[in-house]
């Protein structure tokens, strides 16, 4: 019973309810459908990358380069568009560049055996550098009308495109994690890559696939961001990795890999969206919000640690009490 009460998902649900209740008190418009849909539209890029990042962190790796890959894909698109290439071709090339960037990360991590922290830190700097090489200090916009509409309004009638994409992303990640062989391997590798290898799991291939997927999803997110903003600069999406990693870790995914659930991540995404929205309602600036997200990131690891030591302290106490009475 105590274990069930202390479950991370339950705690997240409780926090979410508190945040929502406070927000309802702050503004009558908060629960309106428009506001809720708006929440998703303003953060869909981060959300889908966070879903991919969930898989990577469960696998005991990390990808710090996601925001730079988003920027690189967006800049590639803008660069090709400004050089009068067919738009659909530009889209395809941007996605391909993202996948290639992910494959490059994946090669060094999976096949050369380098730590993903350093490889993707190099990627964070390097891919952002390439984005800057493409656009220098220009800002490029003027995308086709239909493209901008994808970013700015609903595509499928009443259901907005971003909400649809979020649902699709959740289903895909759920199927991968819970219903596919390779998805279960992600947990196994995250627990112990050695054990996984001795059991005949192709660790390298799984890791490589995850990094390619992360690059591809980041590129898609970068393109969506370009569509929503209508213009791209070299610094587009800079610093997004903080929000993305916070979404995953607050969701209860262990930074050491091997554990974490999709339910937790979805709940934490909802918390962060509603929290940011509530902070905006009380006129707290975006900069302070970023600070609060940073605090949340630390607390999301600190509190489970405290809970764990409190639990083991309680267990020891019970044990010694039993010995005394026995």
């Amino acid at each position: 019973m105590t274990r069930k009460l202390l479950s991370w998902e339950a705690l997240l649900l409780f926090i979410l309810i508190v945040v929502v209740l406070i927000n309802v008190n702050l503004s009558p418009f908060y629960l309106g459908l428009n506001n809720q849909i708006n929440l998703f539209q303003l953060s869909i890029e981060k959300i889908i990358v966070a879903l991919a990042m969930t898989l990577i962190i469960i696998n005991a790796e990390i990808d710090l380069s996601v925001a730079s890959v988003m920027g690189l894909a967006a800049c590639t698109l803008a660069y090709l568009h400004a050089h009068e290439q067919p738009f659909v071709l530009s889209l395809a090339v941007s996605l391909l560049i993202g996948a290639a960037a992910g494959a490059f990360n994946g090669f060094w991590v999976a096949y050369a055996g380098l730590p993903s922290l350093v490889v993707t830190l190099a990627g964070l700097i390097g891919y952002r550098g390439l984005a800057l090489v493409l656009l220098e200090d220009e800002s490029i916009g003027g995308f086709p009308e239909w493209f901008n509409q994808v970013g700015q309004q609903g595509l499928m009638g009443s259901v907005p495109f971003s909400l649809l994409l979020f649902g699709l992303g959740v289903v895909v990640v759920w199927v991968v994690l819970q219903r596919s062989e390779n998805g279960r391997y992600i947990y196994v590798i995250g627990n112990s890559a050695d054990v996984a290898r001795y059991s005949g799991v192709n660790v390298k291939r799984v890791k490589m696939a995850l990094f390619v997927a992360s690059g591809l999803v980041s590129a898609l997110a970068g393109i969506l961001l370009a569509a929503r903003l209508g213009a791209v600069r070299g610094s587009t999406a800079q610093g997004f990795e903080l929000d993305i990693i916070t979404m995953v870790l607050l969701g209860g995914v262990s930074i050491f890999g091997g554990s974490g659930t999709l339910t937790g991540v979805v709940l934490s995404i909802l918390i962060i969206l509603n929290l940011r929205n509530g902070l905006s309602l009380v006129n707290i600036s975006g900069n302070t919000q970023t600070g609060i997200i940073g605090l949340l990131l630390i607390l999301s690891v600190l509190i489970p640690n405290w809970l764990a030591s409190a639990q083991s302290w309680w267990a020891r106490r019970q044990e010694s009490a039993a010995q005394v009475s026995g």
């Binding site: 903080l242 990693i245 930074i255 050491f256 970023t290 600070g291 940073g294 630390i298 640690n305």
Partner: peptide
């Protein structure tokens, strides 16, 4: 707090700046 260094300092990177 036994929070991994990468997480802590990624957080304080944002906190100190804000």
């Amino acid at each position: 707090g036994r929070v991994p260094a990468i997480i802590t300092t990624l957080g304080t990177l944002a906190i100190y700046r804000s």
